[in-house]
Design a binder for these strands. Structure first.
Lengths: 347, 347
DNA sequence: TTGACTTGTCAAAGCGGTTTGGATGCGACC
DNA sequence: GGTCGCATCCAAACCGCTTTGACAAGTCAA
């Protein structure tokens, strides 16, 4: 069923029907009512492609999400982020086009989507420390919003990020205040911008108390359950094991908890854990009382906000870039407690 | 840059350029080479919308994924499934259009995508026991592939499913063979088709040994960590607690494990756990030795396969429906062991 | 009655491709 | 030399919508 046929059934011209459905004022309310009713009963809906072609607006947003180099992992935060963004898009009748590409191939995907004219804007995921995407995005010329920040570029683009540095400094301070001195950091790949900022937050808190960071207590890599487990297990067998872990994702923290239990230790008593919590739906951090003490910020809310900003910028291209840095909540859970008495090797 | 301009630069007609890029034989190899090279250097790519309009093929597949009723959860298996499907689409130059809708609103979303002509096919997620989607999909008339099965309809559509019934029967038998008699089932909502089949597999194995199913040892609901924890915790405080848990998702099993530890029990010794494992990237089930004994099938592979089937059916509409039921692996992990001696209330 | 102004509707020109049905040029064959 | 076949290339007609500019009918003031 196309516009011409549908207009024919109604005894109106395509122009009038299009205007009626588009909400333009040049058509009487009476006619509009008849048209909209008929559209529903006949199941007529304007062809998206044709409408896009005519208006020049694709009515779609591109999300390019990277898998890891081995192609095997998709960060679970994407599901929640995309769900949040999708809520906003559907409200404004935008489509969401998802490209899953190998890590590092995002730029090519952006170009493809843009040159083929099938998106009006882009969401940029997972900015990295050496990211070259900024230049590419600029010469693509499409509006975009970054989830996180493109390092080395302060201005000229929109982003929504959490204050990773501050969150991890506060988390570290919390552990230091509890008397912990040997604190391990289990973090994402250092090439990821967020991981670098978290590392810096951790390091600055440690430096603030004059405590050196032991490289043996640092892990950077995929934030999987398995990696959390392995790193924690190995560190716990060190001659001077950590008394606390600062972890970058709840999934990884679950691996840490497993390692702690396997070592016959009690989380929150013998060993403390603080983690970052993205508030993923299926992976809640306990119910009334949080399991893990955590820095917390909803990635789904971030998805919603990124989408809102992007759509606003598409509607009003002159808008100044929106840059939001969200504070994380620091929630007390059952995974932290005072450092056990330090009976380590005396000086 | 549009076709006419680009052809102008090359001193060729739009027709020839289109044919050269489209791989048609009516153009000399020499010309084709020049055109493809120029396309890359000038960054020309045919407008997706215009091409779709002209060919009548949208070159896109729609995935409609439901959130839970409270809008707060997105099943993490979607991320892996979609990533698998996305691999196949990008290889064949298809786009993936994602709609996130409230649970139960999928049919409306299918209609919308189809009537607006912006997809050539649909992937149907999460079929439910009372599912009305079959009829709707039929009168939409677009090719589709179901991940799972539409209950009550044996034929006439394509699907990829795992043998849920058999997997859970085997898992139950394994526990029964270890001497367990009080086995709890922690499952998804019974309205989900897969949950019903798993329940049936469990029930048939129990019935096979003449062991009654205790309703107090059944949980059906969202398969979240929190629910797994709560259900297991409550059951473990019963006068006759279960000695084994059969669980429908790894995330839920993690909650069960937490409850077991909190009760001061050892998983694999005091209490056994068997779970289903979708092999999600970030949530591996241990490394060399699986943590959980599990029925296992990769949801990412299922995504790939569904996409392949769908694209094949789009290319050759006459094809008979493909119906695949995959066997799950049953892997031995550290979470199962012989039932502890039954010193319960003597007769 | 006439002209200006609304109001509601329409015909037709795009949007940027693909594809049909030629047109052109050139060598080969009879 | 005329005709045919083949290899290349092109003009123009779509695809289904939006939107510009025009038009008929009705309203109102002069």
């Amino acid at each position: 069923m196309n516009l011409k046929e549908f207009a024919g059934i109604l005894g109106l011209s395509p122009t009038t029907v299009s205007r009626a459905l588009g909400g333009y004022p040049e058509v009487s309310e009476e006619t509009r009512r008849k048209v909209t009713e008929a559209a529903i009963s006949h199941g007529y809906r304007p062809n998206r492609r044709a409408a896009s072609l005519a208006t020049g607006r694709a009515m779609a947003i591109g999300h390019v999400i990277p898998t890891t180099l081995n192609h095997e992992m998709v960060n679970p935060v994407f599901a929640d982020f995309v769900a949040g963004a999708g809520e906003i898009y559907s409200r404004q009748n935008y489509d969401l086009i998802l490209s899953v590409v190998a890590d590092g191939d995002e730029a090519r995907a952006y170009r493809g989507l843009a040159q083929a004219g099938n998106v009006d804007g882009l969401i940029v995921h997972g900015p990295r420390s050496d990211d070259r995407r900024f230049d590419i995005l600029r010469d693509i010329g499409l509006p975009y919003v970054v989830h996180g920040r493109l390092p080395g570029h302060q201005t000229g683009y929109s982003f929504v990020d959490i204050d990773n540095l501050r969150a991890f400094r506060k988390a570290t301070d919390l552990l230091l205040d509890l008397g912990h001195r040997r604190i391990a950091l289990l973090n994402g790949h250092l090439m990821m911008d967020f991981a670098r900022r978290r590392r810096d937050g951790f390091a600055s808190a440690m430096a603030g108390r004059g405590i050196p960071v032991d490289p043996a207590l640092l892990f950077f890599g995929e934030m999987s359950e398995a990696n959390g487990h392995r790193a924690a297990r190995d560190m716990l067998t060190l001659r001077e094991p950590p008394t606390a872990f600062l972890v970058s994702s709840l999934i990884m923290a679950i691996g840490v908890r497993r390692a702690i239990h396997e070592a016959g230790l009690r989380m929150g008593a013998d060993v403390s854990v603080v983690t970052h919590d993205d508030v993923l739906g299926y992976l809640g951090n306990g119910e009334d009382r949080p399991i893990f003490t955590a820095t917390r910020s909803s990635v789904r809310a971030a998805g919603r906000r990124c989408a809102e900003i992007l759509l606003a910028r598409i509607a009003q291209p002159g808008l100044a870039p929106a840059q939001e840095i969200w504070e994380c909540d620091l929630v007390q859970g059952a995974s932290t407690g005072p450092a056990p008495d330090n009976r380590g090797p005396s000086p």
